[in-house]
Simulated scan of single mutants.
Amino acid sequence: MLTDTRTTTVLPVSDMDRASRFYTDQLGLKEVGRLPDGSRTFDLGHGNGVSLLPAEEGSQTKHTVLSFEVSDISGEIRELEGRGVRFEDYDTPDIKTVDHIADMNGEKAAWFCDSEGNYLCLHQAP
Rank of each mutant, 00 (worst) to 15 (best):
6 R>P: 00
32 V>H: 05
98 V>N: 15
114 D>Y: 06
6 R>A: 09
67 S>D: 10
22 F>G: 09
92 T>K: 08
115 S>D: 15
32 V>Y: 00
16 M>F: 05
16 M>H: 03
114 D>E: 07
19 A>G: 12
82 G>F: 03
51 S>R: 10
57 E>V: 12
57 E>I: 10
4 D>M: 11
17 D>Q: 15
38 G>L: 03
79 E>A: 15
69 E>T: 14
32 V>R: 07
73 I>Q: 10
42 F>A: 03
43 D>L: 00
125 A>W: 05
114 D>H: 06
51 S>H: 00
107 E>L: 11
100 H>P: 04
29 L>S: 02
9 T>S: 13
101 I>R: 08
10 V>I: 14
44 L>W: 02
51 S>C: 12
65 V>Y: 00
38 G>Y: 02
74 S>H: 15
58 G>T: 02
25 D>E: 15
19 A>R: 07
102 A>T: 07
106 G>D: 08
75 G>H: 02
17 D>R: 11
54 P>A: 00
117 G>D: 04
7 T>P: 00
79 E>S: 14
38 G>Q: 00
47 G>K: 02
91 D>H: 14
32 V>D: 02
75 G>A: 14
109 A>L: 15
75 G>V: 04
17 D>T: 14
124 Q>C: 07
41 T>N: 04
71 S>N: 07
103 D>Q: 13
120 L>D: 12
67 S>Y: 08
2 L>G: 06
96 K>M: 09
27 L>H: 05
62 K>C: 05
70 V>E: 09
75 G>Y: 04
112 F>K: 08
96 K>I: 14
30 K>A: 06
60 Q>P: 01
110 A>D: 11
46 H>P: 00
7 T>R: 12
79 E>T: 13
19 A>L: 05
126 P>W: 08
18 R>Y: 08
17 D>P: 07
66 L>N: 07
87 F>R: 08
32 V>G: 02
58 G>K: 04
9 T>K: 03
121 C>V: 06
97 T>Y: 12
52 L>C: 07
43 D>M: 07
89 D>H: 10
66 L>C: 05
81 E>N: 13
110 A>P: 10
112 F>I: 06
26 Q>V: 05
26 Q>H: 09
41 T>E: 09
19 A>Q: 08
82 G>C: 02
7 T>I: 11
74 S>R: 15
126 P>E: 12
8 T>L: 10
55 A>R: 02
54 P>N: 01
111 W>M: 13
121 C>H: 08
63 H>T: 12
65 V>K: 03
116 E>I: 04
2 L>Q: 09
